[in-house]
């Protein structure tokens, strides 16, 4: 199988504190991988390390190989190429990811234009507009002509997150990182975004690193999962196994907690 990402013995630390230690995992082409963790587990720092976006105060050691290139210790110039080309991220809050003063169409057009130029393709206005339309279609955004002219505050939270996903896909990344992409959304919208992410992986043949604290959501998205706590890997394996027959006591307590709310929903509380 094609390996898109290999993390080996990753360690992230500030001068006086170790934040992530001994983390190793791999992600294959077309795979949906879930990273589960509560606050302070190091799951988001891990995703920042993969994209080379760690704050200056945090030092990374170990290896992160992304699409054949080493990320740890790479100069910024190389990382800029890697971001977009190999990896793109969708964050929790689409409102902060989007420029409030720019129409949505132009926001999607920016990464499209950069990618066309990088690939040596024509990047005239009609070329870009055509690509933007294709992307909006891919993320199932309705009424593209109207939405292209709309500003972020004029559309719903779910539509904003679709725009953020379209911007991430505009670069044609091999790996899409989604860091709590549904946490700020209503459940009905969440269900739609989960369906969208799954179908994008299949349709585009990309890999997905899905980060969330919500076990049930991860269970819907990922084939394989890893549970993190306090910067360490606790347990990893097929999603169905880890979420139904966890071996570690911490994972067991998380699964029991989630199952309790599920039971309450069945009217069994």
């Amino acid at each position: 199988m094609d390996e898109i990402l290999r993390v080996r013995d990753l360690r992230l630390a500030t001068v006086d504190k170790v934040l992530v230690e001994g983390l190793s995992f791999t992600l294959s082409r077309g795979e949906r991988f879930g990273l589960i963790g509560e606050s302070g587990s190091g799951k988001s720092l891990t995703s920042l390390a993969i994209t080379g976006l760690l704050p200056d105060a945090i030092r990374a050691s170990g290896q992160i190989t992304l699409a054949g290139e080493e990320v740890v210790g790479a100069p910024e110039r190389r990382l800029v190429g890697l971001r977009g080309n190999a990896v793109a991220t969708v964050f929790q809050e689409p409102l902060t990811a989007l420029d409030p003063l720019m129409p949505l169409g132009r926001q999607i057009a920016q990464p499209v234009r950069r990618r066309l130029l990088r690939q040596g393709l024509p990047a005239t206005r009609p070329d870009i507009t055509r690509e933007v339309h294709t992307l909006m279609d891919q993320v199932r955004l309705p009424d593209p002509d109207r939405l292209m002219r709309a500003y972020p505050h004029q559309v719903s939270g779910g539509q904003r997150q679709r725009v953020a996903i379209a911007m991430a896909l505009a670069c044609q990344p091999k790996l899409l990182i989604a860091d709590e992409p549904t946490t700020a959304l209503d459940v009905t919208t969440q269900a739609e975004i989960v369906t969208l992410l799954r179908s994008l992986v299949t349709d585009l043949g990309i890999s997905l690193l899905f980060i969330s604290h919500d076990l049930a959501v991860v269970g819907q998205v990922a084939e394989r999962v890893m549970v993190m706590r306090d910067g360490h890997m606790i347990e990893a394996g097929p999603a169905d196994t880890v979420l139904t027959r966890p071996r570690d006591s911490y994972t067991q307590s998380l699964v029991a907690a989630a199952a309790r709310f599920d039971a309450a929903l069945e009217g069994d509380a």
Partner: peptide, 22 residues
């Protein structure tokens, strides 16, 4: 929960992700 009457309640309940069942 057992028998939601309104379409909205039904879709809300159906959208909530549940844990996989062993």
């Amino acid at each position: 929960l057992r028998n939601p009457q309104h379409a909205y309640t039904q879709s809300l309940l159906a959208s909530i992700p549940r844990m996989p069942v062993p």
